[in-house]
Amino acid sequence: MKFLSMTLLATIVLSSCSNDDDNVPTVVNEEEVITTITATFTPVNGGAPIILRSYDADGDGPIAPVITVSGPFATGQAYHGAITLLNELETPAGNITEEVHEEGVDHQFFFQSAPSIGTFAYTDADANGRPIGLAFDYTASATAVSSNLTITLRHQPNKAAAGVANGDITNAAGETDIQILFSTVVQ
């Protein structure tokens, strides 16, 4: 009986001791809530910018986003592009653009259209010299075309995979933070 009492007491004492590793806080990098994406295409030779915007009033909720395109792209025209991301569920609105830039090694935008509306070239880079896509150059197709442009933000893509640094999403892997389809026209 005495042996059982000592065993029980030892078990209680040992189980109440905690491992120091249990007290180390775990850093959780929560996924960004993005309600608004704005892609601004400013003509290199001057003129009014073309603005592509998606606003989703409830984030990932059941309400469909409102997607707008301010006008057509001009054939053969060169544009400087910039993307802004907001979380408008917060007051004031949270600027997710800064977070994506700071965590650039874990993010990359992709621009896809079929038929092609032109060419995109990244003009920003992360700490490893690989593209992010918050800033880019775009040259519109030399011929008139109507097409859907899909802008995708990937979280933790494999930026070293074949073609990814040039904007090919095929081998990127990772998780999609946001993906918006814009109906665009080049004329």
Rank of each mutant, 00 (worst) to 15 (best):
G59Y: 11
V186S: 08
N29E: 11
R130F: 13
H155D: 12
L52W: 07
K159T: 01
I37S: 00
V105H: 04
S116L: 07
G76K: 02
I132V: 15
A125E: 15
N23R: 04
A173T: 02
E99R: 10
E90L: 10
V100L: 09
L8S: 06
F120W: 14
L8E: 05
F111H: 04
E88N: 14
A48C: 00
T75Y: 03
E98D: 15
I63S: 13
L52F: 11
A140R: 07
T143V: 11
S141M: 08
N87G: 03
I117H: 05
I180S: 03
S147Y: 13
F109W: 14
L153D: 09
I37T: 00
I132D: 09
A39S: 13
Q77D: 02
A165D: 14
I180G: 02
G46V: 11
R53W: 00
G118T: 07
T36S: 03
S54L: 04
N23F: 13
Y55I: 10
T184L: 06
L14M: 15
P25F: 04
P25T: 08
G59T: 13
D22K: 03
T91H: 04
D124N: 10
E31L: 09
H101Y: 12
P157Y: 01
V24C: 02
D124T: 12
S54R: 04
D58N: 09
A162E: 15
F111R: 02
I67R: 05
R154Y: 12
C17E: 05
I50D: 00
V105C: 01
T176V: 15
E98N: 13
V13I: 15
V33E: 13
N23D: 08
Q108C: 04
D56M: 03
I50H: 00
G174S: 07
V33H: 03
F182Y: 15
P157N: 01
T11F: 15
A93T: 09
I178V: 15
E90S: 10
D58F: 05
E99T: 15
L89K: 05
P65A: 07
D60P: 05
N23V: 07
P43W: 02
G129Y: 12
G71Y: 05
P49C: 01
Y138P: 03
S15G: 09
N45C: 01
T91G: 00
A135T: 14
D58K: 01
T40I: 14
D177P: 01
T143Q: 11
G61Q: 08
F3G: 01
P25I: 06
Q156T: 12
D20H: 03
I169T: 00
R154Q: 11
I169D: 00
D106F: 11
A10N: 02
A172R: 02
E102W: 05
V24T: 14
V66G: 01
H155T: 12
A162D: 14
T75H: 02
I67E: 12
N166I: 01
I151T: 05
C17I: 14
P72K: 01
P65T: 10
G133F: 11
E98K: 10
T68H: 02
D56V: 02
T84E: 14
D106T: 06
A162W: 06
A127V: 13
D20N: 03
I96Q: 14
I117D: 09
T152D: 10
H107W: 11
